[in-house]
Simulated scan of single mutants.
Amino acid sequence: MAENPIIPEKIKLFNIEVVNTYINDDTINDNLNLEFSVAHNTKHNLKNERVKIELFINLLSHEEIGVKFHIDFHFVIEDLSDQYNLNKDNIPVFSHHFIATLLGISFSTARGLIFQQLQDTKFKTMILPIVSPYKMLTSRDSE
């Protein structure tokens, strides 16, 4: 697929919805030795030029969930049709660069939201790692 340039001014993040939050700081000790995982789903409405990125972020301590967030990011994309082609079954296939851009915006925003929500817990000094949106895509493609 020939990728069209992504024009940031055509991307509007119009809603952030924290769908589910779970915080259990009883599972940690002072060293904050946690395992981190992030997963995502992408949904779209071509007619209204909208894309939703669902992020699922988990932190586990001693195989118990310490932190769990499900956050939805709702975008409206001007000229969305520039970012996908229809396959032989008439299903849109979005460019990896475009989806990685939306994942990067979403995850970066989620890091700040989660940091703020953890300030009154034992996790208050924790900052989520920076994650490559391309690695998030390729890990999903290999599943």
Rank of each mutant, 00 (worst) to 15 (best):
M1I: 09
E3V: 13
P5N: 13
I7W: 05
I11V: 13
F14K: 02
I16N: 06
E17Q: 09
V18A: 04
V18P: 01
V19T: 07
Y22S: 07
N24Q: 08
D25S: 10
D26R: 12
T27V: 15
D30Q: 15
F36I: 01
S37T: 11
T42A: 09
H44F: 13
N45M: 03
V51Y: 00
K52L: 15
F56I: 07
L59I: 02
S61K: 09
E63T: 09
E63H: 11
I65R: 08
V67S: 05
K68R: 12
F69V: 00
I71N: 03
F75D: 05
F75A: 03
E78D: 15
E78H: 13
Q83L: 04
L86C: 06
K88P: 05
N90D: 08
I91E: 09
V93R: 00
F94T: 01
S95H: 10
H97L: 14
L103A: 03
G104M: 03
S106Q: 06
F107R: 06
T109A: 03
A110N: 06
A110C: 08
G112L: 07
G112H: 14
I114S: 05
Q117E: 09
F123H: 02
K124R: 12
K124M: 08
I127L: 13
L128D: 00
P133I: 01
K135Q: 14
K135T: 07
M136K: 00
S142L: 13
S142W: 09
